[in-house]
Design a binder for these strands. Structure first.
Lengths: 338, 338
DNA sequence: GTGAAAGCGCTAACAC
DNA sequence: GTGTTAGCGCTTTCAC
């Protein structure tokens, strides 16, 4: 049969070397106190001598748990996700769990493929940072498996979720622009049914309403999250009669793309026009001009979702399927004249 | 004992439901042809009915393999790594392997912790995109485990490695600057002992030599890969007598930081001074000015290292510990006046 | 405090 | 073509 390159020591070998039973070795391995110091010492010496490392496949099979959580992200190139995962790891490591991540590249077949690690018990739970699964699919899966959503909720999904209040965040951002005197505020969104997209549009509209600004659908441009769409939106805004003096984009990338187009055309961002993004990616600060944006508390979100998910994993009953909201933060920089 | 939330079906259940033995079920599961169509059909119906998904812990334990490869990266926020991992996944999925990734946050203790997945047989192999391990440690580990380095080699490590020729890449970049007439060419590097850092400095010096330019240590600024160091380097260059007219930085981030400082001071990059980076991260194209740089073939690197590593995993003997070099590519943009 | 032994879910001889 | 069974490495009852 197939074996590891080098036959590695097993618990049996350690037991033989130490002159005790495998049960005793196992007890030492698991920090069980019901073992004499003398035996423990012998075992530890044997472990060191044989360079033994326990095979987790055996352990996990026996314990029906792996202490590993898989995080599936739609794209591996979004720094937001990296930050969330860092938060997840930070919490997980404190309680003896490992986080591994995989990227679905926004492809539902890949996502399903990766979910297999959940089905085949390679991991104890999954966190989805955005998903192509429907609410029904998620609800069905969450009956048998430990699943959580983070960063991006799914409407109708009755599953543990951690995210910012997208509507309120967009509302605050647009209100800020209105407070600064802007009356013509453009919106760069997407046609995605994702909550982050739809809710932010709702927030945009509410803010206009509460500021006594009439909604003008000509000021709303929606396409996709792709970088180019920011510039395309900007071009569009230039064609309409009463151009916006400020623009709110649902992502920093879209905002940055629009800013570049603007600067290319000689329209100075921050003075001639204000542009605001969402996410607070690294580029917002490294850009010229620096970009005003809405920050999501990535680390906090990661920590919270893992804490709650582990709770669910450990408690057979009483699954927590709540929708947790974390606080966002407005960061005003040069792109809005701040 | 601890059990999964919902007792999930096992191969036994399927066998009972289908009215065959577990061996037959296993054969169907593994695509073994020695099974009648009639039996296979019964098994498949039972699988569907019970919503059965094989437990890989059992399978992997039995087969001594997991078909999973772990990729450990120093930081999860570098788009270069994301691209490499995408390449790794692309190849792996074709041959039935999964790639999972974890970030060590440049911390050796975390890295060691994650390497545990290799020792405890949770994964079949590990790819390190930069490591804090010494050559000796790597050599020792590679005797018993399947390890590969990608993107960043380690001097003295006799282990499978895939990377660009850093020295040649830097040489080409600096030669290009020299060809454009620059005689005072600054170098922004790091004090890191990493090959990517040291070799690029060697390439820089060789290019000067081959261009008949005297090496001037005042033109060499070395600190760390941190963003701020680019600006600090730029500030330093302004203090020396005979300022550089061109600067080569060992990373795009350092170059971009320097560019920002330059622009802030009113020194136009691309005309007053040329600045060139390394990596071709997304920002290079999204910046104003766009940034000239050296591109690494990330996808290719990822694919190659996985292909070779899987070869090693599958062949007990004949481990391939070669150092594979992939081709880099110069990309000239506005920051060098192109 | 310790050991014997059952068994987690699966695969692969081996026998028929 | 199919079933029986040993055993992968481990944990955990249950005796003692």
């Amino acid at each position: 049969m197939a074996r590891y390159e080098i036959m590695s020591a097993t618990i049996k070998d350690v037991a033989r070397e130490a002159g005790v039973s495998v049960a005793t070795v196992s007890r030492v391995l698991n920090g069980n106190c019901n073992v004499s110091e003398y035996s423990a010492d012998k075992v530890n010496r044997a472990i060191k001598k044989l360079n033994y490392s326990p095979n987790f496949l055996g352990r996990n099979l026996r314990k029906c748990e792996t202490n590993v959580i898989l995080c599936i992200m739609p794209s591996s190139e979004h720094s937001l996700y990296s930050k969330i995962i860092a938060g997840m790891q930070s919490y997980a490591s404190k309680v003896g769990y490992d986080i591994i991540s995989a990227s679905s590249n926004n492809t539902s077949t890949v996502e399903v493929r990766q979910m297999n690690m959940l089905f085949n018990r390679t991991v104890d739970g999954v966190v989805l940072l955005g998903t192509s699964l429907s609410a029904e699919q998620i609800n069905e899966l969450s009956v048998n498996y430990n699943i959580a959503l983070c960063c991006e909720g799914v409407i109708g999904a009755n599953v543990l979720t951690v995210a910012v209040n997208d509507e309120k965040a967009a509302y605050d951002a647009v209100m800020k622009l209105a407070e600064k005197g802007h009356r013509r505020i453009g919106f760069i969104g997407t046609n995605s049914p994702a909550i982050s997209s739809t809710s932010r549009e709702v927030g945009y509209k509410k803010a206009l309403e509460d500021s006594g600004i009439a909604y003008d659908e000509k000021l709303v441009y929606k396409d996709s999250f792709d970088y180019e769409c920011g510039a395309a939106a900007f071009d569009y805004f230039l064609t309409i009669e009463d151009r916006p003096t400020a623009v709110f984009a649902v992502s920093d990338l879209l905002a940055i793309s629009a800013i570049h187009r603007s600067e290319d055309l000689g329209i100075r961002v921050g003075s001639d026009i204000s542009i605001m993004g969402f996410d607070n990616i690294f580029m917002c600060e490294a850009m010229l001009p620096t970009v005003s944006t809405v920050e999501q508390p990535c680390a906090e979100m990661g920590e919270l979702v893992i804490a709650k998910l582990i709770h669910n994993i450990r408690s057979e009953k009483d699954k927590d399927n709540a929708y947790y909201t974390v606080d966002h933060r407005l960061i005003m920089r040069h792109s809005t004249g701040d």
